[in-house]
Design a protein around this nucleic acid. Structure first.
Length: 491
RNA sequence: CGGGGUGUAGCGCAGCCCGGUAGCGCACCUGGUUUGGGACCAGGGGGCCGUAGGUUCGAAUCCUGCCACCCCGACCA
């Protein structure tokens, strides 16, 4: 079984690559670091988008679209921002091609050089804030709550499908507020939405926290994040929400008149999740037989596979299967009846397993005789035979059960791999033996953080929001600390 | 961007050391038997051997450049 998928235990990276390819999620493009998201992979992304979009709208946000190109001068308006992105920007310098005179194809027309180069957005803060300047005059224009679904480009040195690609899809929310408090509340609200999405829809437990000074978004006052733990013990940042303070308002001169007529800079936030979530989803639940999808994000929740010898059997089973399809669809499930006679049942079983379809119904001659169907669930591999009459109630329940069960499994894994340590030896020992999240005291300095990173490759993933005050000593420097932070090796 | 590895049919690989008609498995097409966990038999189609140069009578094979992918580092919200 599980043809061609490397075992996780043998080579985790290869296992991940195998899943992405074999489950038909994505493939490499002709351009370095870019990916082609295949229909099945894109369907999963669409499910994520739909749910997130709904949650954004429910909290008062509306979608808009800002352009791909950013004038070069915009990037340099916010010092920290340019510092953070300059090294990975793609730049458009010309606007025309022409036929090469020697007939060997096209070349860039040297006469078509742009007056000002255009940067392909690595994120849209600058274009958006330059626009907000015109949209905001008074406190009556606030808050401005906008989201956009877009692609961005960051010229990464080392790429991996979904986890880090040169071009990726994401959503970026950009809001402007009249008060600091309101902006901070928005930042936290969106963090909570990401956490809720990750846990309830992706069935992936996350830790909510704040980034350290050196890990935060360039241009932000505070960066909040959700951090997830992958099966190999490495952490993955799954979403970020930034309190921008008045940094971009000042850089782009965005002021509003308050109710006393006084001019003030507005307060901003930005927040985003990307196709990286696909990578998180894969690494959170999948196994050596392929993808495992939570029912809430599975493009196909239930697949029906017929088993037959004769045309009579085939016809009878099809009729029954169509009834079941209709019944389950009426209950809101996404069902596919795979009646192709070009593939054998065993082949289909393996195929849907690889693609992570949560539940499979097999109907064969024996079932027809007994009035039963066989149900197999992807997450545990368990098979049960139930009466055909129960199908309509059983499957919706099973979907909830699977959703719950894979969350619990992932949660249990994280629990087992979250370790509190108090000494530097323990820190290194735990990191090398089992990895995972390490809770340790930190003196709050960037120097210590850097040293730890240098010596162990572990970084501070976040300062957890729910941390309890606790007197202790920094695991590295021994200086006093009043709170534990989360360390891990990360993607 | 540094170190190592790989690039040969849609996919996975052999052939390369030692230059001389491009092969195997899976997939694909045709026909038949099959169908409760990736079926079997017979026949068939498919290649600018990553790419550009060089050496040679002759290059998948030797040499050089480039490109891409993988692993490890550096880098990375």
């Amino acid at each position: 079984m599980s043809k061609g998928i490397t075992n996780r235990a043998d080579d985790y990276s290869q296992w991940y690559n195998d899943i992405v390819k074999k489950a038909d999620l994505a493939e490499h493009s002709p351009v370095r670091g870019c990916m082609i998201i295949k229909p099945y992979g894109y369907s999963i992304w669409e499910k994520m988008q739909q749910q997130l979009d709904k949650m954004f709208k429910e909290t008062g946000h509306t979608n808009a679209y800002f352009p791909l190109f950013v004038p070069k001068s915009f990037l340099s308006k916010e010092a920290a921002h340019v510092e953070g992105f300059a090294k990975e920007c793609a730049v458009v310098t010309h606007y025309r091609l022409k036929n090469n005179e020697d007939g060997t194809g096209v070349i860039v027309d040297p006469d078509a050089k742009l007056e000002e180069e255009l940067i392909i957005r690595p994120t849209s803060e600058t274009v958006i804030w330059s626009t907000y300047k015109n949209w905001i005059q008074s406190y009556r224009d606030l808050p401005l709550l906008i989201n956009q679904w877009a692609n961005v480009v960051r010229w990464e040195m080392r790429t991996r499908l979904f986890l880090r690609t040169a071009e990726f899809l994401w959503q970026e929310g950009h809001t402007a507020h009249a008060s600091k408090q309101e902006a901070v509340e928005e930042t936290i609200q969106m963090l909570k939405i990401y956490a809720q999405f990750a846990e309830e829809h992706m069935a992936m437990p996350v830790i909510q926290g704040k980034k350290s000074e050196s890990e935060k978004f360039p241009g932000a006052i505070d960066t909040y994040c959700i951090e997830a733990l992958m099966q190999d013990g490495k952490a993955l940042q799954a979403g970020t929400s930034h309190f921008l303070g008045q940094n971009f308002a000042k850089a782009f001169d965005v002021k509003f008149a308050d109710n006393e007529g006084k001019l003030e800079y507005v307060w901003g936030t930005s927040w985003g999740v990307s196709t990286r979530l696909m990578g998180a989803l894969i690494m959170a639940h999948s196994d050596d037989n392929g993808l495992v999808l939570p029912p809430k994000l599975a493009p196909i929740q239930v697949v029906i596979v017929p088993i037959y010898r004769t045309d009579e059997q085939k016809a009878a089973i099809e009729e029954k299967a169509n009834e079941i399809v209709k019944l389950l669809r009426s209950k809101g499930l996404s069902v596919q009846f795979d009646k192709r006679d070009t593939h054998k049942p065993g082949w289909k079983f393996a195929e849907y397993e690889l693609k992570g379809v949560p539940a499979r119904i097999a109907i064969g001659p024996n079932d027809m005789e007994n009035g039963t169907v066989e149900i197999a669930r992807r997450d545990t591999g368990e098979k049960t035979t139930i009466s055909m009459d129960e199908v309509g109630n059983y499957l919706p329940q099973l979907m909830d059960e699977i959703q719950d069960s894979i969350f619990k499994k992932a949660h249990g894994f994280r629990k087992d791999n979250l370790t509190s340590v108090d000494t530097w030896d323990q820190f290194k020992e735990v990191l090398d033996s089992k990895g995972g999240f390490i809770l340790a005291h930190w003196d709050g300095t960037a120097e210590t953080e850097d040293k730890i990173k240098e010596e162990t490759k572990a970084t501070i993933r976040c300062i957890p929001l729910d941390a309890v005050e606790e007197e202790g000593k920094c695991v590295y420097s021994g200086k006093p600390s009043n709170q534990r932070v989360i360390f891990a090796r990360a993607y």
